[in-house]
Simulated scan of single mutants.
Amino acid sequence: MNHVGLTNRLRRVREDEAPVSGRILIIDDEDRILQFVARGLRSEGYEVDVCADPHEGLEVAQRGGYDLVILDLLMPTLPGITVLDRLIQRQPRQVVIVLSCLTDSRTKVQCFQLGADDYVAKPFSFHELLERVKVRIRSARTSTGPLEIGSLRVDLVRRQVQVGNQPVALTEREFLLLWELIQHPGRTVSKEHLLASVWGYKFDPGSNVIDVYVARLRQKLGPETIVTVRGEGYRLNAA
């Protein structure tokens, strides 16, 4: 593909006056999403490239030079899951946040197994996406190994969890629930958010599925690992 032609098809969104906090590539075939996210990130000081064609987006991402790639999954001509797979094969250290309307746990786990660092479901809050962008870029710049939260040691690449020196086996749902809590350090996460993010369900006040899985995690990781905030939700105990 002609480099000049490819460059012309890339729409650069940049705020020259703002301090650049990182370089981000967004690959999504929805122009409304591209422009909405790009404008928001630009206002926060990021340099943003956007690409609506997954083939072009993959080619650009494989050249490297991005602190973060935000990737949609449902795109014509080339599925986002294929883009993710090929990108990580070429750039194994590339930080990727998947942004998709697919909310089933199987898809999320597959993305994590292929190397995605985070998964945000559409529709989404820009403020939440922004916080995840900050966390992912900061972690990539400062961390070279597993995360340590209190007595927990979580290897996001290998999907392994330890309490102290003892490995703990988690199911797919349990790991996704723990991962969702990790994404909100020091903050309470509502049952509504957890149900939507981990299970892809709308909130049902009569459902106790969150309570059941939190109980399982406490049994495996320790009773003090997850704190119940009455009337609000759950918080990961970082002590």
Rank of each mutant, 00 (worst) to 15 (best):
G45V: 01
V227H: 14
E180M: 07
I26F: 04
V135E: 14
Y66D: 03
C101H: 09
V161N: 05
V98Q: 02
R235H: 09
T7P: 00
V189R: 13
N2R: 09
E180H: 11
V189W: 02
G80Y: 06
R32T: 11
Q89I: 04
E232I: 15
D49W: 11
C101P: 01
R9W: 04
L74I: 09
L176S: 07
V161S: 04
Q160F: 00
A196V: 00
D211A: 15
L147A: 14
R159Y: 07
G200C: 00
V168D: 06
G65I: 03
E174W: 09
R230M: 10
R138W: 09
Q113H: 08
T228H: 14
L10C: 10
S21I: 06
S151W: 10
Q89L: 13
H184D: 07
D104E: 09
R11L: 08
A18S: 07
F203C: 09
N2S: 11
E131D: 14
E44R: 12
K191N: 11
V229I: 15
L73P: 06
V20W: 07
L58F: 01
I27E: 05
L78T: 00
R153S: 12
D72Y: 00
Q110I: 01
V4H: 15
I27T: 01
T142Y: 15
R42P: 02
S100C: 08
Y46D: 05
V198L: 04
V20L: 10
N237M: 09
P54E: 02
S105V: 07
V135S: 15
R86I: 01
R11E: 11
I26A: 08
A238N: 13
L6I: 08
E148P: 01
D155F: 03
A18N: 12
R235T: 11
V83H: 04
R132S: 13
Q91N: 10
P76W: 04
I210D: 08
E56P: 02
L181E: 09
R235L: 05
I226Q: 09
Q110M: 10
T171M: 14
G57R: 00
P223K: 07
I97S: 15
G150Y: 06
T144W: 13
G57V: 00
A116R: 01
I137H: 05
D67V: 02
R136A: 15
H184R: 08
P79K: 03
A169L: 12
P123Q: 03
R141G: 13
H184G: 01
E56T: 11
H55M: 03
V168A: 02
A52H: 11
